[in-house]
């Protein structure tokens, strides 16, 4: 009985979070203003963090906030401020129907893939998911999946170096 109540609450929370994610996503995409779009993105990221909480992965949820909200979006913010992008720029203007169709397709495609994956191979569901300890998580990264983990960090380093190089290049052009 109690589990059932819990589950009802969980569903409510799930839909609430999904709503936050979706609204945030729409704000991100439809907003004319880059900073507002960023705020939408942050909203989405918070929603995702909430989903992680629901899945009893508070560590990952907090990491999501710490890294994506606290660091990545701040950096995006910085990038927006550094580049002079404003509503009169090349991004604005009327959108052709073709563009809307393509955008819709681009949005639906991953959704279909993920949805099919979820339907065809549903992950095991628990009424109350277990919380995995941080230590186990760490061991997971550093023992079983060490290569992908390190490759990701390499990728990030390369991306960072590339950004710096690009920035210098742009500066030199001026």
């Amino acid at each position: 009985m109690e589990n059932l109540e819990y589950e009802r609450l969980a569903w409510a929370l799930l839909y609430g979070h999904i709503a936050i994610i979706v609204i945030g996503g729409f704000i991100t995409v439809l907003s004319q203003n880059l900073v507002r779009a960023l705020v939408g993105l942050i909203m989405t990221l918070f929603g995702v963090a909430g989903l992680f909480f629901l899945m009893a992965a508070p560590f990952i949820a907090l990491m999501q906030i710490l890294i994506y909200v606290g660091a990545v979006s701040v950096l995006i913010f910085f990038a927006i401020m550094l580049t002079s992008a404003w509503p009169g720029g090349d991004e604005s203007g009327t959108i052709s129907v073709r563009k809307i169709i393509f955008a819709g397709l681009a949005a639906i495609a991953p959704a279909i893939f993920l949805g099919m994956a979820a339907i065809l191979k549903p992950p095991p569901s628990f009424l109350i998911p277990d919380e995995i300890e941080v230590g186990i998580l760490g061991r997971f990264f550093l023992e079983d999946f060490i290569l992908p983990f390190e490759l990701i960090s390499l990728l990030l380093t390369v991306a960072m170096a590339g950004a710096v190089v690009l920035a210098f290049e742009m500066r030199r052009k001026k």
Binding site: N33, L34, S84, A85, W86, P87, G88
Partner: peptide
């Protein structure tokens, strides 16, 4: 909102 404060 005008971000391009320079063209003020």
């Amino acid at each position: 909102m005008n971000l391009d404060l320079r063209l003020d």
